[in-house]
Design a protein around this nucleic acid. Structure first.
Length: 295
DNA sequence: TTCCAGGGATATA
DNA sequence: TATATCCATGGA
């Protein structure tokens, strides 16, 4: 990692400072690490394309790579494009405010926020989220990561040292047999069908649509049910009035004692009613807390 | 060997 | 609308 060069400009209210803004050498320093932890952001289940190196994390999204390096109570983002990093890492949002608004209601959530207060919800590419979370269904995380890596190697643009995430057109051009060959199993047919719909301009119809309509629209895609739709909405469109319910969230629901629903559909509904626009944030704090501590 | 993983599609009543 | 069954794969 390079050393910090230049003079620190005035500190922004959001807790980061631009060190170097030139492409491809853009760098940021995060001063407020109470609301920024590289490990927590990456391990809370929202992203599959990242690697932990000896002294830093390497993150891939679309056709970009960025590095996160933590030291001296700061995090350096080496990203190549400062504007993009500000958006991607959601740096203009005040997570202190979010955490304070979520606090004091459930002891369990308070503990989760103390444990994973450095989580942020990344702004990722919708197509990448749709494909990734179709692959995630009834699957485990190490396997999901492997499949997505092989998907990028096979169809993504060669960026010199790594491959980007494939475009919808590239995804649509691949055969079902290809998806099977990289380990997708029965999800292979879902991916061939859905990628064709994506290549046909599906995403353009998501603008200015309310969350419930957007959810219904996503669920017209083969391989996208309620839980996968909620993950796509949260991580690909930053719709935070959703609460993805998987096997972990079912435990979370029961532990919080919110209600007596027995199926994921009603659990998600009640959790969103309870947390409103902050449901997605609450879900991430709780999900990370439960998984890391095997609760 | 069996169970499980950030579930969804399909058939059936 | 609600419930049951099937689905590829690999690690535990």
């Amino acid at each position: 990692m390079n050393t910090i060069c230049g003079v620190f400009p005035k500190l922004r209210e959001t807790g980061y400072t631009i060190i170097s803004s030139g492409i491809p050498n853009g760098k940021l320093v995060i001063n407020d690490t109470d609301s920024f932890s590289a490990k927590q952001i990456l391990d809370c289940g929202q992203i599959f394309r990242y690697k932990q190196r000896e002294n830093y994390f390497e993150i891939y999204s679309e056709n970009y790579v960025s590095h996160l390096n933590s030291y001296n109570d700061r995090v350096i983002i080496d990203c190549g494009d400062v504007d993009r990093a500000v958006t991607f890492f959601d740096l203009k949002r005040d997570y202190g405010l979010i955490k304070s608004a979520l606090s004091g209601r459930y002891e369990l959530l308070d503990e989760a926020i103390r444990f994973g207060g450095g989580i942020r919800i990344l702004n990722q590419n919708p197509t990448e989220m749709i494909i990734s979370f179709i692959i995630s269904a009834n699957n485990n995380i190490p396997r999901i990561k492997g499949i997505i890596e092989r998907l990028c190697e096979g169809l993504g643009e060669d960026m010199g040292g790594y491959h980007g995430f494939p475009t919808a057109e590239r995804l649509a051009s691949a055969s079902e047999n290809f998806y099977r060959s990289i380990g997708c199993g029965y999800r292979a047919s879902y991916l061939t069908r859905t990628s064709r719909v994506l290549a046909d301009g599906f995403d353009a119809g998501m603008d200015g649509v309310d969350t419930l309509s957007a959810r219904k629209r996503l669920m017209t895609l083969t391989g996208v049910g309620g839980k996968v739709a909620d993950c796509i909405l949260l991580f690909g469109y930053h719709r935070t009035d959703v609460f993805p319910v998987d096997v972990w969230s079912e435990r979370i629901y029961r532990s919080l004692g919110i209600g007596s629903a027995s199926d994921p559909k009603n659990m998600a509904k009640e959790l969103v009613e309870s947390f409103g626009d902050l449901a997605g944030y609450a879900q991430q704090y709780l999900y990370y807390y439960f998984r890391e501590n095997d609760l």
